[in-house]
């Protein structure tokens, strides 16, 4: 259908703009509620220790070429030897992450809080949009799309003759939900944007086996080739000094 629909200006003033504004405000509210509910848990001493060991090993790997071969080998053995190296994890000692999670009720509680702070506002807004604004053609995207997008963009309108580029209010809600993420990262600071993805990661590999990190780092360190950089530095110093003199 090529001819344009005539949309009432009142739809813009009372549906499109309020809906968008409410979405933004809800996002801000959710951010602050999540901030309030965030409990500062005291980290487990063993986990912190392992994390620091991994960091040290990583630093060693990054700066490997700046220390003599002998020193590097000594450090490598300190980290990787098979008896008491820091990165060596005896078999069977790895803790089951599931059991670990249940042994610490705080962890599960925290996860639930995070989940709830995400789900509750979304359900409420969706119900609100559904109740007040169902069945409006609220917007029109400025580029043509194929029929496949009809179910995505015209959720709540059951007309097959309307052009696909018209967007129902419910679908406008979804568009806002996904599209405002970048906007939030601007107005609420970077941490908000990372938060969502990080939360996902945490949920996916919750209580991820720390020993896995250790052994992965051990493998990385094992295959690191050492190539001392100092011999080349003389040449470099020469060029730099020559440049200074001339």
């Amino acid at each position: 259908m090529a001819e344009d629909l005539v949309l009432d200006t009142a739809i813009r003033d009372w549906v499109l703009i309020p809906l968008s504004v409410v979405m933004v405000l809800i996002g801000v509210l959710r951010y602050f509620v999540a901030k309030l509910m965030r409990s500062s848990q005291t980290p487990d001493a063993k986990m912190v220790k392992e994390g620091q060991v991994i960091l040290r090993a990583r630093n060693l790997r990054a700066a490997a070429n700046f220390i003599p071969t002998k020193a590097f080998r000594a450090r490598k053995i300190y980290f990787c030897n098979e008896e008491n190296g820091l990165l060596f994890v005896p078999k069977g000692q790895a803790q089951n992450p599931q059991a670990q999670m249940f042994s610490d009720p705080n962890m599960a509680m925290d996860m639930m809080k995070k989940n709830l702070s995400m789900i509750i506002p979304q359900t409420l807004t969706f119900a609100w949009v559904n109740f007040f604004f169902s069945g409006f053609v609220a917007a029109k995207i400025p580029f043509p799309l194929t029929q496949r997008f009809r179910s995505m963009l015209q959720n709540g309108i059951d007309l097959s003759t309307v052009d696909v580029s018209y967007v129902s209010s419910r679908s406008w809600y979804f568009l806002n939900l996904f599209g405002l993420r970048g906007f939030f990262s601007l107005i609420l600071g970077e941490e908000n944007a990372v938060d969502d993805t990080q939360r996902m990661m945490q949920m996916g590999g919750f209580g991820m086996d720390p020993s896995k990190g250790l052994s992965a780092e051990k493998d990385n360190l094992d295959i690191t080739q050492h190539d001392w950089a100092l011999p080349n530095f003389e040449q470099r110093a020469e060029t730099v000094l020559k440049k200074l003199v001339s």
Binding site: R12, L16, K140, P142, V167, L175, F178, G179, L180
Partner: peptide
């Protein structure tokens, strides 16, 4: 791109 499309649509509609 998603932000772009959203704000494009919003401004265009208004």
């Amino acid at each position: 791109l998603m932000s772009f499309v959203l704000f494009w649509t919003f401004a265009y509609d208004i």
